[in-house]
């Protein structure tokens, strides 16, 4: 585990989390949540939890984002906050 890379990824993760709850568009929120999940699984790979990381990459980031984008097209993209 390289600590400089670790801190960099942790900072980008926090930025992605804040951005995904503040953007005024649900589709952007879904895509930022997907980026957040992929960065999180990079972090877990660095910590040696490869099984958790590839489950998160396949299911948490891939399928969740696909579901969310599919749901957004059946709903509205508009949000007030």
């Amino acid at each position: 585990m390289i600590w400089q890379l670790d801190i960099l990824i942790l900072l980008i993760v926090v930025i992605c989390a804040i951005a995904s709850i503040t953007v005024k568009d649900i589709l952007s929120s879904a895509l930022l949540l997907g980026a957040y999940s992929f960065l999180m699984c990079l972090l877990w790979t660095g910590m040696g939890a490869v099984d958790v990381a590839f489950t998160e990459a396949a299911v948490g980031a891939g399928i969740s984002t696909a579901f969310f984008i599919g749901a957004v097209f059946h709903m509205t993209r508009r949000t007030k906050d």
Binding site: A30, M40, M47, A49, S64, T79
Partner: peptide
């Protein structure tokens, strides 16, 4: 105020807990 944002928040919460547990294992 938006329900989709609430679900995104729930997802972030759960992922944070998973990060905590993986950190204890390293």
């Amino acid at each position: 105020n938006n329900f989709a944002k609430k679900i995104v928040g729930m997802n972030i919460f759960q992922t944070a807990i998973i990060l905590f547990f993986i950190s204890t294992a390293s």
